[in-house]
Amino acid sequence: MTVKQKTLKKGGKLGEVLRSREISLLLVMVLLCVVIQWRSGGTFFTPGVITQLAQNYAYTAVLTFGMLLVLLIGGIDISIASTLAFSGMASSMLMQHGFLTNPFMVFLVSTLIGLGCGLIIGLVIAKGKVLPIIATLGFQYIVRGLTYVISDSKWVSSDEMLPAFTQFSLDSFLGIPYLAWIFLVLFVIVLLVLKWTEFGRQIYAVGSNAEAAKISGINIDRIKILVYSINGAIAGLAGAMFTSKYASAQSNMATGAEMDVIAACVIGGVSLNGGQGNAVGALLGVITIAIISKSLSLVGIDAFWQQALKGVIILLAVAVNVLVQRNNDREVLKGREI
């Protein structure tokens, strides 16, 4: 008993706890995969299914990394799906009318439009001192409405898009689809930035204790504006990915995607109070969401029950998270008594 407590005491550092949390999530995921593989009669882990999974959920994954940054500074952004639709629609329309002739320019323009949206949201939150949930709720209405206004509620269909642009989402490099490359590269960037750059550490500082961060000389407003701008840019990038993947741009696209994205972050152990969570967790979270969504039909669960099950899984994930945390805290306290 004492030996166990001693090891626990050693491992009581925050880093250890966080790392173990990701390992437990990974274990759950592996278990999930094994069960699915067994129940689906080996039809899950085939290159075809995995590729499809990566293509379908690449945009969710990309959005998750943006949301991770926002949640880390203690904010929230429920307008990302609207930003995605607006920048995807705007760039598609520019392509439709022949202003953009290079598929990479479409991606770039879409990202820049998203950056603009994010910048405005960041300014309202930081300089206007509006609570993030309220500001982004407002912008959810505004940006989605503007999408309908600029498109006049019409679609941009695949034959009006550049063939190279729609082909982009189908092609792959080294056996991995381009869309998956985008989120993998973004994952590495976010991971590195959060861990080893001043900006990354400042994000954690603002999220853990804004007052303390301010006193220690961090320009909180600047960090907030930057983070919301980055998040907007990522949503814009996701907009181009979405339109490329589905080869059409509609005003109501990706409605409700923000909920999936927040759920992915929460499953990945990102706290909504800020300052807690990392890129690995977010990646695992979004993979879990993707696997659940994809696999239910493979194991013979009626497609209509998928949403309900998703809700249960999110609840279980957060409840287990709390129980583990409580247990850890108790053990740490016990260790201190001795």
């Binding site: 929230i76 949930i133 909920m259 927040i262 759920a263 929460v266 706290s271 909504l272 109070n273 009626d302 209509f304 029950w305 998928q306 949403q307 309900a308 099950l309 998703k310 809700g311 249960v312 999110i314 609840l315 957060v318 409840a319 709390v322 945390q325 409580r326």
Partner: peptide
Amino acid sequence: FTELAPMVVTLATNILYRGISEGILG
């Protein structure tokens, strides 16, 4: 679970409640 943010819990139950309805009605 007082540690949990209401936003997370009700976000999940929203998906759950609507999901049950979707499961029943198709």
